[in-house]
């Protein structure tokens, strides 16, 4: 039963979503069924949110208790979760500092701490790209050298000064890079991967709907 029930639910919901895709949205009873099913996903997701909060607090607390390496960061995690969550859940009628509106504690922490920290993490990506590019573009073989030359040309073309210099060269280099490198070889490979991935996703969906694949339930 533990396996059968989810498979039946997956079949019924999957088939319903496939059928409603081909029906007009104005069709009585079934037209809006797919949207309603997707709403159910959000509702179920809301219920599981508590599981997430319990998980993060329990794991962090255990690390603090056992004084594992980096345990003091976990204190910051616990404090952050509580300081962000509790005032945002309290009713605004009690105080304008509660809730999630502008001027609330949650809003202040989000704007002044969380958003800058996320922006900082994103900004560090530039350094990671530099180190990854260094490794990827080392000209060890003929293929790697070709990749390096192409990458240098594309990067050069992407900056205004580079494009200006390329324009000084004989032949229309920017046009060549755009047409044959970016919209030629690059796009062809990307499309090949996308078509393969789309077919793979569709095949996996079908295997799940028909109950052939049950590995997502930990079976098989």
């Amino acid at each position: 039963m533990r396996t059968t029930a989810p498979v039946i639910v997956a079949f019924l919901v999957g088939i319903t979503l496939v059928i409603t895709f081909f029906l007009n949205e104005k069709t009585p009873l079934v037209g809006q069924l797919s949207n309603q099913l997707l709403d159910w996903l959000i509702i179920i997701g809301g219920f599981t949110l508590l599981l997430g909060v319990v998980s993060i607090l329990r794991v962090s607390w255990q690390t603090v208790q056992r004084r594992k390496e980096g345990w003091f960061y976990k204190i910051a995690t616990i404090v952050s979760v509580l300081v962000m969550a509790i005032p945002s859940l309290l009713p605004v009628s009690w105080s304008p500092l509660f809730g999630r509106f502008e001027g609330s504690i949650y809003d202040w922490l989000f704007v002044n701490l969380q958003a800058p920290m996320m922006a900082t993490m994103f900004a560090t990506l530039a350094f990671y790209i530099a180190s990854a590019a260094y490794r990827a573009f080392r000209a060890r073989t003929a293929e790697a050298t070709l990749l390096l030359l192409t990458a240098v040309l594309v990067m050069f073309w992407r900056v205004p000064i580079g494009e200006a210099i390329l324009n000084l060269m004989p032949g229309d280099m920017p046009y060549f890079i755009n047409k044959f490198v970016m919209n030629g070889a690059n796009l062809a490979v990307q499309r090949g991967i996308i078509i393969g991935a789309a077919l793979g996703a569709a095949a996996m969906s079908l295997r799940i709907i028909l109950g052939i694949e049950r590995t997502y339930l930990g079976k098989g």
């Binding site: 590019a133 490794r135 990827a136 991967i193 991935a197 793979g200 095949a203 694949e213 590995t215």
Partner: peptide, 17 residues
């Protein structure tokens, strides 16, 4: 660039099978 092995596109969906 950063990993030892990479599954591309459809290989990910084929992995469980």
């Amino acid at each position: 660039a950063a990993c030892d092995y990479t599954l591309m596109g459809e290989e990910l969906y084929a992995a469980s099978a």
